[in-house]
Amino acid sequence: MTEAQISLLETCGDGAGTLRNAVTHCLNEVRALVPDTGRGTRTCGGALAVIAGIGTTAPRALHGTLLLDALTAHDIEITDSVVFPDPAALLADSNWDLALVLSPWKQEVAGLIHAHTGSAARTGVVDTLLRSGELTTGVNTNSWAAQAAMETVLGGRTPSSVLVLGAGGSSNSVALACRRAWPGAQLIGSARDATALASWAAGFGAEPVAPDGLKARFAEAAPALVVNTTTWGETDESEQQPFVFDFGELTAPGNSYFDLNNRVSALQTAALRAGMNVMSGTFMQRVTNACRAALLQADVR
């Protein structure tokens, strides 16, 4: 499937403008599905919301600064936040307005609901659920957020090649973002799970390369943009085991590295030392949460 080319980067280099562009595209996808019901509850000039969460990091995410900052900016007050143990419990509860869907549930939840935004349907990944009356809509904010981050770290340049490390749900969102932003770029993926990698590559017209084949594949030129979608580097504990890829073979001065993990990891440090342009996952998470807050505030509920 060929994606329509879309650019989110503000030409003047305004990061806030790039964020707003991503939010606008995300909202438009939802508006195409959800009629204007006007059922948002307003009080004292703001909106009240019950926010749910599911996934390993849901308890932390629901009370994290990145989400709370976005809600405050949109004048939204959380009346309650609830963590559910599994998708069945989450979908059976009718009291929440918006739900954060985090790993390892993003792909499973996508298969349990019937209404999906275009990005959610294309990736098979849902990171946010929005309630509108009896309708529950699966939203993929991550593809827009990842695209905003990648365009920003590249500074408006078009990469000749993008290497995506990992073949989990997040790699789908990154792949869609790449295909929208740079349809002509070479998209390459590498992961330990050969079956998952082959499926990912077939779904996005990408080239699969086994970890032990990366050195030969990039012998002549390192990838212009490397994206880490794995959880290696997410915590101190994750770095106790060696990274499956020889990361040094992928770095080159002036090229770019984007890591979906917020924590400043060993890989990010290595990329900086190599003279690369580096971005952690923090900007992507801020865009994701801005999308969520905007969905609550907008007349799509």
Rank of each mutant, 00 (worst) to 15 (best):
S171R: 06
T141E: 15
A145R: 14
T123M: 08
G189K: 01
L129M: 06
A149M: 05
G189R: 01
W96P: 06
C178Q: 04
G189M: 05
E134N: 15
G156K: 02
A89K: 06
L154K: 02
W144P: 07
P87Y: 00
T137R: 10
P183I: 14
V162M: 04
A99P: 06
S81Q: 10
I76A: 08
V164D: 08
V109E: 03
V162E: 00
N172K: 13
V153Q: 14
L165A: 08
P159W: 09
I113M: 00
L90G: 05
E108M: 03
P104N: 08
T117H: 06
L165Q: 10
P87D: 03
A175V: 10
V139L: 11
A121F: 05
D93F: 00
S171G: 05
I188F: 02
S132D: 14
M150E: 07
P85H: 02
V101S: 06
S81M: 03
T158D: 13
F84P: 01
I78C: 15
A110M: 10
H114R: 12
S103C: 12
V125R: 06
V162W: 01
G111P: 01
S103E: 09
S81I: 04
Q147T: 13
D127T: 03
D97T: 05
A149R: 04
S161R: 07
A120N: 12
T137N: 05
V82C: 10
S170N: 14
A73T: 11
W96L: 01
S161T: 12
A149D: 11
S190D: 01
V82P: 05
V139A: 06
A92K: 09
H116V: 09
T158Y: 03
G138Y: 08
T158W: 02
L130H: 10
T117I: 07
V174T: 07
G111Y: 02
S119F: 00
I78D: 00
L100T: 02
P183C: 14
A89T: 13
G184R: 12
A167T: 05
L90W: 08
L163W: 01
E108P: 01
E77C: 11
C178G: 10
E134L: 14
G156N: 05
R157W: 04
Q147C: 08
R180P: 06
N95D: 15
H114F: 09
V162Q: 00
W182M: 10
L135M: 15
M150T: 03
G184N: 12
A89W: 07
E134K: 15
S81G: 04
W105A: 03
P159N: 10
N140P: 05
I76V: 11
S160H: 14
T128E: 09
V83W: 02
I78F: 00
